[in-house]
Nucleic acid binder design. Sequence first.
RNA 1: CGGGGUGUGGCGCAGCUUGGUAGCGCAUUGCGUUUGGGACGCAAGGGCCGCAGGUUCAAAUCCUGUCACCCCGACCA
Length: 592
Amino acid sequence: MALHMSSLFLRTLREDPADAEVPSHRLLVRAGYVRRVSPGVYTWLPLGLRVLRNVEKIVREEMDAIGAQELLFPALLPKEPFEATGRWTEYGDNIFRLQDRKGADHLLGPTHEEMFTLTVKDLYSSYKDLPLSIYQIQTKYRDEARPRAGVLRGREFVMKDSYSFDVDAAGLDKSYQLHREAYVRIFDRLGFHYVIVEAMAGAMGGSKSEEFLATAEVGEDTYVHCTSCGYAANVEAVRVPAPSPVGWEDVPAAHAEDTPDTPTIDTLVTHLNERFPRDDRPWEAGDTLKNVVVTLVNPDGTREPLAIGVPGDREVDEKRLGAQVEPAEVEAFTEADFAANPALVKGYIGPGALGLEGSSGIRYLLDPRIAEGTRWVTGADVAGQHVIDLVAGRDFSADGTIEAAEVRPGDPCPTCDHTLSAARGIEMGHVFQLGTKYAEALDLKVLDQNGKLVTVVMGSYGVGVSRAVACVVEGNHDESGIIWPRELAPADVHVVAAGKDEALFVKAEEIARELEVQGLSVLVDDRKGVSPGVKFKDSELIGIPTILVIGRGLADGKVEIKDRRSGERREVAVDDAVAALTAEVTAEVERS
RNA sequence: CGGGGUGUGGCGCAGCUUGGUAGCGCAUUGCGUUUGGGACGCAAGGGCCGCAGGUUCAAAUCCUGUCACCCCGACCA
């Protein structure tokens, strides 16, 4: 049965809601797809629910096509499995927690690794049962510190998550590849531009991980890409190519110099150029070695300082650092921390004080650019003094390297000789080789061919289903409203009765019925007493890709087919309308 | 958690500086006119001005406190 505007539970808004900033949020509310209930929590109204279901349908079809099987876990979970993996504490404030009448702790699932793992453990115990891929489309809950942009980042959201289970790494590779290909098909069908970028595999267990990012200005993720070789990575995962070691034969011995009042890189560089000018070129920030100290807070609450050495022209990128030290959290080093570590001279920290072997005993990690043989100016661990011609490998060493320095457009590509550009994206999907992290924590093992117990190797794969709805709108709208891709639209054809003549309404109903016989879904604007202008505006706002206007032309046996995206209109004979529309819609579906 | 902002009919906003009968547009209801690009007229319903306390003859307006929401940042398998 066709949807009718006269009775549809819908109210379009002429004005933008005050709390909506990004286009998808504005339009989804204005066009009557969603309503906010509380911060980050939204109601799906009839039109919106149709779109959401369409996304789910695409996801199901492609998951089923690779042999994944759908199941459904509860959203309400007991805490015990999350205690077993440590995530009851690790997830911190992001978990919605609640207690039942007996005082037992529960949570609303933010993700379901534990449940999938335990359920496989419950039912399977042989290599013969594997490989296995199972998935669910489930409402997830995360108490985000700051939900934003409507359903783009909610506290309650719909996600497809699947997990693969294999006996070995080779099997995981195969399952991962299958999912990756399925994701390519899903995102192609969803109809927005996206990139596949290398992502952080995580501090534990994971080995390979890629994100599917919808390219969008409003995106929260920054990624870099190389226009030459196709390399693309989330900034968190960018690998800095380490320069080859260089000889230090010509470098004079390191010498400490007085550099009073130079606690910052800027003041230091100015001072160097005034007092220690070089013949070949002036000193620059990039000649200095900046040592930053932070405090790591482990999930169990223990604290440990960490020093990071980066070239002076770069900041430590907190996101990159955070990803490297996960699950520990990073806090700034406070005055109290300095007081507790007298070996550190604020503003003049140098490698002499750092490192497990250094006077402070603080673990010291270097940016890969600080390769063996490179020479630096850096703090002398004495107030008002810096060391010049300090050579890495000759005069100091560290406890390892860390990828924590900021990444900038123009940096060299790690895989070819070109440079990187930066752009923003929205994380829409994530494929992730988990490895044995959860299987080990929850003791998921099967017997192999030799009767030996082996730990199952897992992969995890997510698609943001409700987020996809917003994301599609971000990529498919204009001034007037939404422009749905065919497969997602709440209906195939929007039939508009534009006028007051009763014959228009009769014909609209007749055509709607015939379209439905042809298998198309239809929204009919059968509102009486509503002027054509209002109906046109609403049809553009709502964004069904094909609009059939039955109006003044009907007297001459003509109706008008309008393409929402291009704005093109063409007149067809009223008797040909159904055939023309059917041909248009089916042709478009096959093309996609 | 830090910074900025906003709370006034369903929605968008004005009024607050300078205290004195709560207003506008949209939406809604009725009647009439109108019907190809967000129509017009007349009439109507709907608001403890976020909440609490204070000052005052009198508070949407001034003071104190508090709560909520939005934006930027921090945070975010």
